[in-house]
Nucleic acid binder design. Structure first.
Lengths: 248, 248
DNA sequence: ACAAAAGTGTTTTTTATACACCCATGC
DNA sequence: GCATGGGTGTATAAAAAACACTTTTGT
């Protein structure tokens, strides 16, 4: 308490003035490798201080005239080429001292991070290596210690991914136009774990909802009966928007 | 397309440079007036330009050394006195041009808003009028046109409130220590609408979950049978954390 | 005695869960 | 013909929804 009042003498000058910020955008970019049943997250190796040479989420600072979402799309397109993706804002981390570039207890500029969460199609995603430093898909279970507070951001993004998958149709943004129910099921199990639902029940529930339409086309993958190809019908899905827990 | 390339000549100087930000925090503060069955949101009248004299969400700019959440608590405590509340971050709005103080297409500073969502106990909330301009609880259905993009923020907060109520125990942060099941039910109906559930079913579901304990105390409110007073048992609730859709 | 508020119980319908089983294809 | 992946069906348990009914108080 007495420590506090000591502080109060020094504070008024500083505390009353507004902080100046640089705003960064950090992306948690997921993709699902169905073939290997792995959930992957995109990491890049820092080329600058701080945290030079350490793995981080891909991020950037926001430029003049650029919206937050624009910045998020910019980093994304600097790192990977994709046509299909889902992207949404995640959370904003902005405590003082979260970035080492902020001189401690100074009038210096603060660094705030608005994080975005993205899910991209693994098969078509093409990583853009700049030839200087690393970029890689990391299986979620093998992510190392990251720079900044990026492990926390990633954890936040992972939780969001699992929730989103349960009640919104983001899977279809990342599946090909035509897909089998097994493709869909595998995507779900890879993210949510094996025991989230039995295949037969998953199937029955989804088909009953009525926004997956059977194209009649069949695809044969090696041995076994050929699978029907389905298409996601966005119009038929419309009435389910805003309704909780559509899937699983 | 040719318009674009013209732009490109002018851009590099500006677009490549980082934007400087002031960061604001805007609060969507809800309370539930059970007596009158109204959901209320706190609005304040702006004392400064821009939007002087117009109703807005209570907000402030973040100061040196202050975290976002600290700023959110600061405005809150400048406007109302409360002991019990729930508060969480909502969303970050940061497009260029969202604040009129940004000179259009200039090098000037950008204004970004991190919004927070709060639920406070109506009965104990004491509004702090500064004697200069207005502050008031507005029924959600009667909110006027607000300054900035605050109607959008409010809408976002309203949706969050309804969702949160369904799967997390925020109601208990805002009910008195001891409450009747009717108090709880009325809070729910006021926010979610009359037809979200039948009282008897609501009651049965909640009691079965087992984190409401009957204190044995009774309270009599006018005519009719006295009601049991319950207490929320946070420990007994713990296992339900992270499980979706506990209520309703 | 009766209206008002609180609380209990019952019936019906729908959904979830766990399986067992049939179908079509490649080898 | 049999392993493999695809697809259907059924039986049981649990949850949601609708609604009728009892209990306890004030007046």
């Amino acid at each position: 308490m007495s420590g506090r009042s000591t502080k109060k003498i020094a504070d008024p000058v500083k505390k009353q003035t507004l902080a100046d910020f640089k705003v960064g955008v950090d992306n948690v970019i997921f993709s699902v490798d169905i073939a290997q049943n792995r959930l992957l997250v995109l990491l890049v190796m820092r080329r600058d201080e701080p945290f030079l040479g350490q793995w981080c989420l891909p991020g950037t600072l926001v430029r003049h005239g650029e919206s937050l979402e624009d910045a998020a799309y910019r980093i994304l397109s600097e790192k990977i080429r994709v046509n299909n993706l889902y992207l949404e804002q995640l959370y904003t981390f902005g405590g003082p001292g979260r970035d080492p570039r902020e001189a401690p207890d100074s009038f210096g500029v603060r660094y705030l991070s608005v994080s975005y969460f993205a899910l991209v199609r693994f098969a078509e995603a093409e990583l853009i290596a700049d030839g200087v430093s690393g970029i890689a898909w990391y299986p979620i279970k093998q992510v190392p210690k990251l720079g900044f507070d990026h492990n926390k951001i990633l954890e936040y993004g992972y939780r969001r991914l699992r929730n989103k998958l349960e009640y919104s149709p983001i899977a279809f943004d990342v599946l090909p136009e035509l897909f089998t129910l097994n493709d869909l099921y595998q995507l779900y199990t890879t993210v949510l774990g094996e025991n989230f639902s039995d295949y037969s029940n998953f199937r029955a529930r989804l088909l009953k909802l009525g926004f997956l339409c059977d194209t009649g086309l069949k695809i044969s993958r090696g041995a076994g009966r050929p699978a029907s190809l389905y298409r996601f019908d966005a119009e038929a899905f419309a009435p389910f928007k805003d309704k909780p827990l559509v899937f699983i």
